[in-house]
């Protein structure tokens, strides 16, 4: 079997006002179905080991967690090596329930933006209210970043994690690097 690599081979840019880093291989499973159904909830919880988050929330610890993508979609995060086991177990436990669990780990790229100016960097790129009162730790949002769709959540008060399509990884990394250039802090928050 070929060796799995991330889109940018672990690219890092720590020179600017916020540190940009590509996240190592991260297992991601898209789970679509009726999120109110107990079988769907149970499948998600068994793979991620955390409770199902409410709308607009992410519930993540380390490289495991659940993100609320839309009223009928969850993103299940788990260690990269465990993905196929989890998908198989989820499909077995879902049985005849109308739901879908698919491994999307290799279709995505993920970055972290960390530092006291992380909000500045994000606010330059996404049309979202990043005021500390409006966007807080644990909140999750799907939107666009410049010209491409992304999803991100706040891991803690000064760090974001971003997920984008793998084919757009270089574009997103370069965007973030430009937005984090030294001397470009807006300091509005």
């Amino acid at each position: 079997m070929s060796k799995a690599v991330t889109a940018l081979g672990g690219a890092v840019n720590a020179d600017g006002i916020a540190a940009i880093a590509e996240v190592p291989l991260q297992g991601m499973i898209t789970l679509r179905g009726d999120l109110a159904a107990s079988a769907v909830k149970a499948a998600a919880q068994s793979a991620a080991g955390v409770a199902v988050p409410g709308p607009g929330q992410a519930n993540c610890t380390g490289d495991s967690g659940l993100c609320w993508m839309s009223p009928d979609e969850l993103l299940v995060l788990c260690p990269y090596g465990d993905v196929s086991d989890h998908v198989q177990r989820m499909q077995d436990s879902l049985g005849d329930v109308h739901a879908l669990a698919v491994d999307v780990s290799d279709a995505r790229a993920s970055f972290t933006v960390t530092g006291p100016h992380a909000r500045d960097v994000m606010a330059k790129l996404a049309p979202v209210d990043f005021h500390p009162d409006a966007f807080q730790s644990g909140m999750f949002r799907r939107t666009r970043m410049a010209q491409v769709p992304v999803a991100f959540w706040m891991r803690d008060s000064d760090s974001f994690q971003i997920i984008c399509f793998r084919s757009q990884a270089r574009y997103v990394f370069d965007l973030l690097s430009v937005a984090a250039q030294n001397g470009s802090a807006v300091s509005i928050f």
């Binding site: 709308p55 839309s70 009223p71 979202v128 949002r141 939107t143």
Partner: peptide, 12 residues
């Protein structure tokens, strides 16, 4: 009205 997110028009 589906996901409850409020955004500006370029997100739609």
């Amino acid at each position: 009205p589906c996901c409850g997110v409020t955004g500006e028009e370029t997100e739609f």
